[in-house]
Design a protein around this nucleic acid. Structure first.
Length: 664
RNA sequence: GCGCCCGUAGCUCAGUUGGAUAGAGCGUCUGACUACGAAUCAGAAGGCCGCAGGUUCGAGCCCUGCCGGGCGCACCA
């Protein structure tokens, strides 16, 4: 079932962005001012890191080590002098030398607490780009989506969320290759093997993407075995590229129908798009011709007259003079790279031309627009970004380099530098998962410890199958714990749990790490998983629900309206003071984690951070009862503490695309 | 052959861009539900960080070589 889900982002936590990022920023400047009077230090030398243990301090400087080398003296001497120079720093309680020369800072907790909990909306994060384009998903519209596509979409969607959190304007594009060879294969199958008319296809109601998944595999095998059929395939390709033919009508029908299936699959994970640029529109509007003329003019490509590439337009590779990449084939047709160069130019607004658009679908209150080669009634525009992320797996690194080289050759140095290939490793299948989906392996594949997902071979775990299984399992768990809920509510919750499981699973691995997909791991709801994070947030939510029921006051009202001076940190027992502090400091690191994630294009750290935050939260309220606390001041203090943690967690979960139900 | 990536606990993986005692989850073993929700929490065991050199105050991280595995190098995308 497809459940329309609400975006979590708009409601609760618009205001609260308590962050260590800003504290560090201010401290760094002050430290630099003081130290540079005596030593040759710059802002970059002053890196405030966390200490390995809370007892050692809150923030650490290791600059004594490199400085000692430069000044030919002892790190401890430097550190000791630095402590003198930094004495009385605002917001810092004391400074100590530790180890071989670490300078450890202990923040003034009361003032950090007071200040941070008052200045709620000062994050210190600022946008740097005019507009950022994130291209992801990009599934050939000829078959069902599989787990490999899910990794791509989860990474791309999370990147977009992080960039938006930072304050950037983000446009999410999903490129649709509706005239490519993969669609051609399925059209060939429908016409030549299945002998289906368009009218018959339109009557097919269920799982068209699954039907095409099988058909595509059959066609691939058929074409491998029947060389004579390849002429017919080539003919279909040309007709589809040219448009205005029965074959093109099939391609249009297939690609749109499958595209809708993909969008439905992705919406199950709360993933959506702004615009769907189609290859057919690029061809119709002759984007390539413009790019072609410019590439020729700039001498970026040339007509080859000898060797294997005779009769083709080719590009020499910058890093390897020996090699050349064919851009236009000897029969005059365009390779994928050629189209991609034109597309990349358009993304930066360098083509001097835009697509036409029309609405294709809506998710929530957002419209998804699709490109058109013909004028429409809608005055909307896309593209024209100042920075572009292409989320594409690592196997296409070489082609991405060629695209960027094309931009550089045209003199667009800036845009070339701002073209970022977000590469990631593929998803492969374990032998066990293969036996679960009952596929037969070639003898060669049987020797391997894992097998690459392949749409052509039909080797893959379909995205909807995985999500279905997760929902089924989640529904059973929800039913067990909340038997009184209505059926629709249970299903909605199950879908949210399934989504969180998929998303966390796809994000927890570093992008360079190959995922060998295993059902047992993906279906796990305990430990470091999406549902664990969700569960933590749900329990916090219910604490505040109960609080509101009793007191008629929301957590936010308590947090923002009840004065901080009511409670003095020194009244806490040392153990609780420590646990409180650890939770607050850790929670305040979120913004830095987001910036790091963007800088390194690595979300595993953000996922792990969120998980660790959950562990700390669970531990905290396990040790200190909140609503049952008799001392009202202490109770208020604890409520505010977990409210803060709750908000930070909600923000982190929103970035990971994980939704928080009321119960689960 | 050339290029890129990976090798860390029994398994799956982190490791903050060279910093303090290498961390999680799963699995195994102990313990905690008359509940602010046990999808949880507390604890234990488990490591020549593939191997060998080098760089330096300091290396899982950087350099070189080797071993093992993967992916690219199409007139496919």
């Amino acid at each position: 079932m497809r459940v329309k889900v609400q975006l979590v982002s708009q409601i609760n936590f618009v205001i609260i962005r308590i962050t260590m990022y800003q504290t560090k920023k201010i401290l760094r400047e002050k430290i630099e001012d003081r130290l540079k009077l005596e030593w040759p230090v710059t802002a970059e030398d002053i890196e405030l890191t966390s200490t390995p243990d809370e007892k050692l301090g809150d923030l650490a400087l290791s600059l004594a080590f490199p400085l000692a080398r430069k000044l030919r003296t002892n790190p401890r001497t430097i550190a000791a002098r630095a402590v003198e120079l930094l004495s009385g720093l605002e917001g810092v309680e004391r400074i100590e030398v530790a180890g071989g020369g670490y300078i450890n800072l202990f923040l003034d907790r009361q003032s950090f607490f007071d200040q941070k909990f008052k200045n709620l909306d000062r994050s210190g994060l600022e946008p740097e780009e005019k507009k950022i384009i994130v291209e992801h998903t990009n599934i050939n519209p000829n078959k069902a989506a599989h787990v490999g596509h899910l990794r791509n979409a989860c990474l791309g969607d999370t990147l977009a969320r992080c960039l938006r959190y930072k304050g950037e304007q983000v446009e999410v594009q999903n490129y649709i290759d509706d005239t490519g060879v993969q669609v051609v294969d399925v059209v060939f199958g429908l016409i030549e093997l299945e002998k289906k008319t368009l009218a018959e296809l339109e009557k097919m109601t269920d799982k068209f993407d699954y039907y095409c998944w099988d058909l595509y595999t059959r066609v691939s095998r058929y074409l491998a075995d029947h060389e004579s059929a390849r002429n017919r395939k080539a003919e279909i390709l040309k007709k589809i590229e040219h448009g205005q033919s029965p074959e093109a009508d099939y391609a249009y029908f297939v690609s749109r129908r499958i595209l809708r299936a993909h969008l439905a699959t992705m919406s199950r994970l709360d993933i959506t798009y702004d615009v769907l640029p189609c290859e057919s529109s690029i061809l119709r509007l002759k984007f390539w011709e413009k790019a072609f003329a410019r590439l020729k003019e700039a001498g970026a490509i040339y007509y080859s007259t000898e060797g294997e590439t005779a009769g083709c337009w080719v590009m020499k590779l910058e890093d390897n003079e020996e090699r050349e990449k064919i851009i236009v084939r000897s029969d005059g047709t365009l390779t994928y790279v050629g189209k991609d160069i034109a597309y990349q130019l358009w993304k930066f607004g360098l083509l001097g031309q835009d697509f036409y658009y029309e609405p294709f679908a809506t998710t929530g209150d957002r419209t998804i627009w699709i490109s058109s080669g013909e004028p429409t009634d809608y005055d909307v525009h896309f593209g024209g970004g100042s920075q572009v992320y292409n989320v594409i797996d690592v196997r296409q690194s070489y082609l991405q380099k060629v695209v960027v080289q094309g931009l550089r050759a045209l003199g667009y140095k800036q845009e070339a530098a701002k073209s970022i290939h977000f590469s990631y490793e593929m998803v492969a299948l374990s032998p066990r998962s293969l036996s679960e989906i009952k596929v037969e392996l070639s003898d060669e594949d049987k020797e391997r410890t894992f097998v690459e997902v392949s749409g052509r071979k039909g080797l893959g775990v379909k995205a909807d199958d995985l999500i279905d299984r997760l929902e089924e399992k989640a529904l059973a768990e929800v039913d067990k714990r909340n038997p009184d809920l209505k059926e629709a509510a249970k299903k909605l919750i199950a879908s949210q749990i399934a989504g969180s499981a998929v998303r966390y699973f796809m994000l927890k691995y570093a992008r360079n790490s190959l995922i060998v997909f295993d059902f047992d791991e993906a279906l796990n709801f305990e430990g470091e998983t999406g549902p664990y994070l969700q569960y933590t947030a749900v329990r916090l939510k219910s604490i505040f629900r109960k609080f509101e029921e009793k007191k008629g006051m929301t957590g936010q009202e308590l947090f923002t309206k009840v004065a901080d001076s009511q409670f003095d940190l020194s009244q806490l027992k040392p153990e609780e003071a420590r646990d409180f502090w650890e939770l607050v400091v850790y929670g305040s690191l979120l913004d830095e984690e987001v910036l790091r994630a963007i800088a390194t294009l690595e979300f595993a750290g953000l996922a792990k951070f969120t998980f660790n935050l959950c562990q700390k939260i669970n531990g905290y309220y396990h040790r200190y009862s909140v609503l049952a606390e008799q001392n009202e001041k202490l109770k208020t203090f604890r409520l505010k503490t977990i409210y803060f943690a709750h908000q930070r967690l909600n923000q982190a979960l929103d970035l990971l695309g994980i939704q928080v139900p009321d119960k689960m």
